[in-house]
Design a protein around this nucleic acid. Structure first.
Lengths: 106, 106
DNA sequence: TTGCTTTGGACTAATTTTGTCCAAAGATAG
DNA sequence: CTATCTTTGGACAAAATTAGTCCAAAGCAA
């Protein structure tokens, strides 16, 4: 699951099963071109589509979601000069902090 | 620098200097309301504005950028169910991988 | 009260993202 | 070589998001 983009991941799942884009797209009820773009990371799948991928390919929805989200944040951070390790480290602390805070607010 | 949102950070910088929003906004040449919203995290500063903050408050541009980016990815990840540690871990590997790849592509 | 600050709603403009359609380029098989 | 299917990506309109401004009301302190 590591080291590739989300697009690479789903493309590999499809190719392992020797299916053309058209067939998978039909199964997921999305446009073939859309699927092609998702595999090329030029369109983002919705949460719903990620769920369909998981069901169709019989893989973990959670793992696919992690693959997708990590892509999103990786690309976001790479747009800027690279402070990525620091950014992720601080971000993780923020998430922890903000979650606790949210709980306390109740 | 830890544990707060970007808005909290710049608000603190301003309050430490006992300046009203208006004055800082003028100095940065942005709308007062805009600055208020940035402090409340309901509008995002551009890279350019982050630079102005850094200059005006005499703090590190890099640190402010990290504060801003970590906010962005923290909020992004928090929108979904929480797999944040895994997401950041994978994302960091992806950044490394994608950077190497980019170099190799040349 | 007066005057300044802060907050946030409303709204438009600008920008970004989505989804679809289509045509061209690539493969593959006959 | 031809016919067929797959893949790729440009173009475009629609939809969604975000940005920036203006303004009014609430808050605060003198």
């Amino acid at each position: 699951m590591l080291e590739e983009t989300f697009g690479d991941t789903v493309k590999k799942l499809r190719e392992d099963r020797k299916l053309p884009l058209r067939e998978v797209a039909e199964a997921l009820k999305i446009d073939t071109s859309m699927l092609g773009k998702i595999e090329k990371n030029s369109r983002k799948p919705t949460k719903h589509i990620i769920g369909k991928f998981a069901t169709f390919f019989e893989v973990s929805d959670k793992d696919l979601t992690i693959a997708f989200l990590s892509d999103a944040v990786a690309f976001r951070v790479m747009e800027e000069e690279d402070f990525s390790s620091e950014v992720f480290k601080v971000a993780e602390e923020k998430v922890k902090y903000l979650k606790t805070k949210k709980l306390l607010d109740k």
